[in-house]
Every structure is written in C-alpha cells, then in structure tokens.
C-alpha cells in the first residue's frame, strides 16, 4: 500500500489507518446485514427456560460464551484461517473450513454460521473488490465450502490488512455483543441493562482474545456442551424469536 498516494475510491488501496478503522466499524455495525440479530446459537432455549433472566445471568452466560466457547472454537478458526490466507494456502483453508463445519455438532448453530458467512459475502462483495473473497465465493458456489463466517471474516480481515489480534478481538466482540442485543429483546431487559452488560464484558472479551492468540487447531474444544444441547433443543421451542 502506498500511503502518499491514496486512492479513496478503492478501499483496498486505502492505506490510511483511520479509514481502515472505519471500514472495520462499518462491518461490525449491528445494521450490517449478516443476520446476527436472527441467531441466538442456543441462548434462546436458556432464556425460555428462565436460566437467563437477569442482567447478571446474561453477563455470566456471555462470559461463559467468550471463555468456554468462542476462545475454544470460532476464535481458533479465525486465527488458523488468518494464517492460511496469509500463506495463500487455499487447500489448507478449504480443509480448515470443512473441519469448522464438522466441528459444529448442533445443526442449527452449524447452519447459522454458514448463513452469516454467505450473507457477509453478499453484503461485502458488491462494495469491496477482492480477489480472495471472489475466489472464496466461487468455492462456495461450486459447493467446495459452506462459507462459515469465522473463516470468511478472516479472509476479509487479511485483505484489509488488519493484524491478527485486531481481527480476533473484533470477531469476539461482535459475536458477543450480538448475543447481548438479542437477549435484551428476548428476555426482555432494558437498554440500559444491555449497555451495562456490554461494558462489563469488554475486559472479558479482551482477555478472551489474548487467550485465543495462544491457541491452535489442536486446542479446539466443544466443552460448552450445555450450549450445544440448548442449540439442539432450540427447534422444539413453542415459539421462537431466532432462527438458531
């Protein structure tokens, strides 16, 4: 990237750090249409059974979600994908995505992750020219991959030149904050309570991201089994606000 000769009409050639920060904020805006507001990844089952009822319950749950789920699952896929994209190891990336798909035992959560990845591609490709993302979209169209969000997101992050830690941090942040927003609607809680929970979660997210930096594919762990069962049971709920 040439910092002195910035072509502002093309995001990929924008070398300005603050501009890149805005692009990053843009894709994590809750209005960015990747459908995160339609997925609870099993949380709704706990809300309906009154296991998550108060502000404190929500904080405890989201804290578990960061430390026992994201750090051991999707954050590892973000990290591994990031390194494979950097190395242009496409075969490795396809294999990794296959493993990501297979590692999600609960069908609804598996499908949700695919849907978000696909929607991310649909939203970003018309406004952002990227050879890697186009190639990824082709692989998706050819059914070589399912499009899982953590990996698709990582490809975008490498293209934009974000560093690995920022990529992991923002991924964990938006995954967690998305859940809080959804919980606030579903429980329901007041907006103020939602903000308090997010505020309280931020150090947890940061700690989680640092922790995930030391992890590798071999550290993958599905020990958030309770959440997995909740996701499996979700489709049997009488009425549902969320797809997953």
């Amino acid at each position: 990237m040439n910092k002195r000769n910035v072509d502002l009409s093309s995001p990929s050639s924008t070398g300005d750090i603050s501009t890149n920060l805005l692009y990053l904020m843009h894709i994590h805006d809750s209005a960015f249409p990747i459908g995160s507001y339609t997925h609870s990844f099993g949380m709704e089952t706990y809300i309906q059974s009154d296991h998550i009822r108060t502000k404190q319950d929500l904080f405890d749950f989201c804290s578990m979600y960061v430390h026992e789920n994201l750090v051991y699952t999707d954050a590892i896929f973000v990290k591994e994908a990031f390194e494979k994209v950097q190395a242009s190891d496409w075969d490795g990336l396809i294999r990794l995505e296959n493993i990501c798909d297979a590692s999600k035992n609960a069908e609804e959560t598996r499908v949700a992750s695919r849907m978000m990845g696909k929607q991310f591609l649909q939203a970003i490709l018309p406004v952002f020219e990227s050879e890697s993302l186009l190639r990824w979209k082709q692989l998706l169209d050819n059914k070589a991959i399912k499009g899982h969000f953590p990996i698709t997101y990582s490809i975008y992050a490498v293209e934009m030149g974000y560093d690995l830690f920022t990529t992991m941090l923002t991924f964990i942040y938006s995954s967690t904050v998305g859940l809080v927003h959804n919980a606030v609607r579903a429980i329901p809680l007041g907006q103020k309570a939602g903000i308090q929970v997010i505020h309280q979660l931020i150090p947890e997210i940061s700690y989680g991201a640092k922790n995930a930096m030391d992890k590798q594919l071999k550290d993958l762990s599905n020990h958030a089994v309770g959440l997995e069962l909740s996701s499996m049971q979700h489709k049997f709920l009488q009425s549902r606000l969320f797809i997953s």
């Binding site: 026992e68 297979a102 599905n222 958030a224």
Partner: peptide, 21 residues
Amino acid sequence: CIAYDTLHLKPSEQNLKKLGA
C-alpha cells in the same frame, strides 16, 4: 469431514460448571 469433535477438559483453567458449559 463429517464429525470433528474434541473435548479438552482442563478443570483448573476452565469454568466447567457454568451455565452453557
């Protein structure tokens, strides 16, 4: 790959008793 299920339990480092775990 149709199943890739790993459980890495390390009780001293994890909060295994939490809701969701």
